[in-house]
Amino acid sequence: MKADRRTHRSHVSYIDKSRNYYGAQGYPQAYQWAYNQDVPFAPLNKPLSECRVGLVTTSFFERKVDKDAVAGSAKKEPYAAKCDDAMEGLYNKDLFWDKDTTHTEDLDSYLPINRLREFAEQGRIGSLADRFYGVPTDYSHRRTSRRDAPQILEYAKEDELDVVLLVPL
C-alpha cells in the first residue's frame, strides 16, 4: 500500500468536533470530558474458556419516553435485560452517532451477542451471560460514576461475570 502524508491526525477527535459544533449552536460552555491520569487494571486470572462474559451497551432497551417529550429526554437509567429479548434490536435514536453514514439495524454491529454465543460454542469463552446490561450515555459524570457504575457492578456480581465487554455506540 502506498504511503501517505498528512498535516493532521487521521482519526476523528470527537472532543474537538463536538466543542465546535455545539459552540456554533450557541452553547457557551464546552462539555467537560472525563480525564484521568491513573488507570485501574485488573488482570485476567483464569482461562477465558472458563469465563462468563458480560456485555454492556449505551443503547436504550426500549423508548420509555412520553411522545410529546423533546428529543434526547428518554430516561437514562442503567438496566439489565435478557439477551434473547435484544434480538429484535435496541433503541438508539436518542444516542449520538453518525446517522447519515450508517445504521444500527444489525444488532451485532454494536452489541455482538450472536458473535459471542458463537465463541462460546467454539469453547473460546466459557459462556455469554443470559443478561446484557445498559448504561444509556448520561452527560453527568456524577450519575455515571455514583449511580450507573455501581449498578452495573451489582449486576455483574449477581450474574457471576468474570470479564466484561463494554461497547459504547
Binding site: A34, T144, L166, P168
Partner: peptide, 9 residues
Amino acid sequence: MSLVARHLE
C-alpha cells in the same frame, strides 16, 4: 461508558 469500565476494574 469508560467511567463504568474503570469502576469494574
